[in-house]
Design a protein around this nucleic acid. Structure first.
Length: 640
DNA sequence: ATAGGGTTAG
């Protein structure tokens, strides 16, 4: 009886449709709309925006077009509310161009229309387009509101432009919208995405305590999580709980993403437990985050357990699982899942291809890499600069520098990442001259090298032994480009100086570093001392290295080699005893090769390979040939 | 009618 009266008027239908949309059941809303039409009732200006929202949530173009046709046939086709809803619907279905055409045809555009377009462009990262729209909007004397400023903030985020975020923040204060919580939340996340957590904190503290929302807390937690600061994130979470706020899915996902480091498995498991206790462990976002957390922390079996237990996997779930296997070096399983994904009707996207390509680079799987290349290009990813960069990197890491070069020169547009990848690729493959030439060309073209570009060129100089060039670039980086060198840059320079026998300068450089030198730097210095037989500095580096890694065998072995080269046998013997006493073991170096898609692992003096006899016979004959060519391989290892 | 935090990669 109640039902009958409810559905006898348009108002009844509208409220039912509104309810469905608000409960995140867009399909039900659309179904109600079709039933309503069958009952002979026509939608009005209140119905259409709800239907548009349903289509937007589904991101379904077909349904959107049906709704749009109904609008055009209705008397509400020039209602500005309805038109705005149509714009938003097309934007959410990734049809920005269609939306823009509609937008230009609206005679009386109010602030909401402009905001929809602005947001659409902002979320795709078209900063210049957003700024132009904003200027046009001001020219049309439309007053910007909180949503406009949120759009501007989002657009400047894509380029991590902190100065622009600050300018927009100032503008927001100027027009008096800084008291709005949603606005403050946007600024919190904007600042934290630009790595300026003190500004984010200042905005957070500026919100009245009673006015804070779960989103305010989540934004702060996400800010710390993205920088890998688990403890700070967890403290914020604790305060949030103390203040009586209930965490939601985003809170748990953010906390999980701060555990994505090999040594944070325990934190990850505890967060998982807490998520279960809070009842948010079955949400697809949380499960996806868990899969990637477990696999990145090295516990791929837990990832797989969760993955296998999922009832509906999205592209993200598959990709998280695939990249877990690819990073681990298990390309067979990664590929098997990739095919299973296609068979399950889920379309691999750009990220899936990127994960596989980087997996191929890491393991040197050239044949599979070629296949990925072909797959990417025949699936519309030819124009993706990110994919091309990943492929260049993959070819370079697999040692196929010609294919890498070919791809690079064929690119229609190149980003700094493309240049950097290519320079690093040349450096890795011993094409030092090409690396230097490319770097100079880049500078000539007025492109700005970044800290990674400089790292690549310094590595090229180090491996080629070009001391003057290296120093020149190191200076250029600091003085011309105002980039502060990181640990890796110092490491390169110390290595370069050390190889050239300038051990005192190398030591001075390491001591002058503004950050704590890591084990690799002391290791590089130590092996330089080995080449140049410097006991004094060697002992110093050895001690520093021992402080950092008490269980490592490398300092013992290297130092023993230095003593041995000076024929100081007593010290060699003492070191050997110390090694036995400390129970340090040297893990033998390994070499990995892919032959016909199969990995082959070799260690020193390893005769275990099925074709070992043949391989070593081949090596012996190579050694003979080298001798005939008057090349004598050097071996400085007196101690094995 | 328009909006804020969260998953995969770099």
């Amino acid at each position: 009886m109640v039902l009958l009266s409810k559905f006898s008027t348009i108002v009844g239908w509208n409220s039912a449709i509104r309810e469905s949309v608000n409960q995140s059941r867009p399909h039900k809303a659309l179904l109600l709309f079709f039933q309503m039409k069958q009952n002979g009732l026509e939608p009005n200006n209140f119905t259409f925006p709800f239907l548009a929202k349903a289509c937007a949530k589904l991101s379904n173009l077909k349904f959107s077009q049906i709704i749009h046709t109904n609008v055009l046939k209705s008397p509400f086709r020039s209602d500005v509310f309805v038109q705005t809803a149509m714009l938003d619907m097309y934007v959410k279905c990734d049809r920005l161009a269609d939306a823009y055409i509609l937008f230009e045809r609206i005679p009386m555009r109010d602030v909401a229309c402009w905001n929809v377009m602005l947001m659409g462009f902002a979320q795709l990262g078209f900063l210049d387009k957003v700024l132009r729209l904003f200027h046009e909007m001001r020219f049309a004397r439309i007053l910007p509101d909180t949503i406009t400023v949120m759009g501007l903030t989002q657009a400047s985020l894509e380029t991590k432009n902190l100065a622009l975020v600050k300018a927009i923040h100032a503008f927001g204060i100027q027009i008096g919208i800084d008291g709005d919580v949603s606005m403050a939340n946007t600024w919190i996340s904007a600042y934290s995405k630009c790595d300026d957590l003190s500004s984010a904190m200042a905005v957070f503290n500026g919100i009245e305590i009673g006015a804070r929302t779960v989103v305010s807390w989540n934004s702060m937690i996400a800010g710390y999580s993205n920088l890998g600061k688990f403890l700070d994130a967890l403290n914020f979470y604790k305060w949030m709980l103390c203040d009586g706020y209930r965490p939601d899915i985003s809170t748990i996902v953010s906390l999980l993403s701060s555990c994505i480091q090999p040594d944070k498995l325990l934190q990850g498991v505890l967060t998982h437990c807490h998520g279960i206790q809070m009842g948010c462990d079955s949400d697809i976002f949380v499960v996806n985050a868990l899969i990637s957390m477990y696999s990145r922390c090295g516990d791929i079996l837990s990832s797989r357990f969760l993955f296998d237990g999922m009832s509906n996997r999205t592209c993200v779930s598959w990709t998280a699982m695939i990249s877990g296997y690819a990073d681990k070096g298990d390309l067979n399983e990664a590929l098997r899942l990739f095919h299973a994904m296609e068979a399950a009707g889920e379309k691999p996207d750009l990220v899936t291809v990127l994960s596989l390509a980087s997996g191929c680079g890491q393991t040197g799987a050239l044949e599979l890499g070629k296949w990925i290349h072909n797959y990417a290009f025949s699936n519309g990813l030819r124009d993706s600069i990110v994919v091309c960069n990943a492929l260049i990197d993959m070819y370079a890491k697999c040692g196929n520098i010609n294919s890498a070069r070919e791809l690079f020169y064929a690119l229609p547009v190149r980003t700094v990442v493309s240049w950097t990848t290519m320079i690093a690729g040349f450096a890795l493959n011993g094409n030092y001259e090409e690396a230097l030439d490319l770097f100079c060309l880049m500078v000539d073209l007025d492109l700005k090298p970044n800290h990674l570009t400089f790292l690549a060129i310094l590595q090229a100089c180090t491996h080629a032994g070009l001391l003057e060039k290296g120093m020149e670039f190191f200076d250029m980086m600091k003085k011309v480009y105002k980039i502060n060198p990181g640990v890796d840059h110092y490491s390169c320079m110390a290595d370069l100086l050390g190889r050239k026998g300038r051990l005192e300068e190398a030591t001075e450089l390491v001591k002058s570093m503004p950050m704590k030198p890591d084990a690799r730097i002391w290791g590089a210095l130590l092996s330089a001392c080995k080449i140049h037989r410097n006991v004094e500095i060697g002992e110093y580096a050895c001690r520093r290295l021992f402080e950092l890694e008490p269980q490592g065998a490398v300092p013992f072995v290297e130092m023993a080699n230095i003593y041995a080269s000076e024929r100081r046998w007593d010290e060699v013997a003492a070191l050997r005893t110390a090694m036995k006493f400390k129970k340090v073991k040297k893990i033998p170096g390994q070499s990995l090769l892919h032959v016909n898609g199969k990995p082959h692992v070799f260690t020193v003096e390893d005769r275990g390979h099925p074709e070992g006899l043949l391989i070593y016979a081949m090596l012996d004959s190579l050694a003979l040939q080298l001798k005939e060519e008057q090349y004598s391989p050097r071996s400085e290892n007196f101690v094995k």
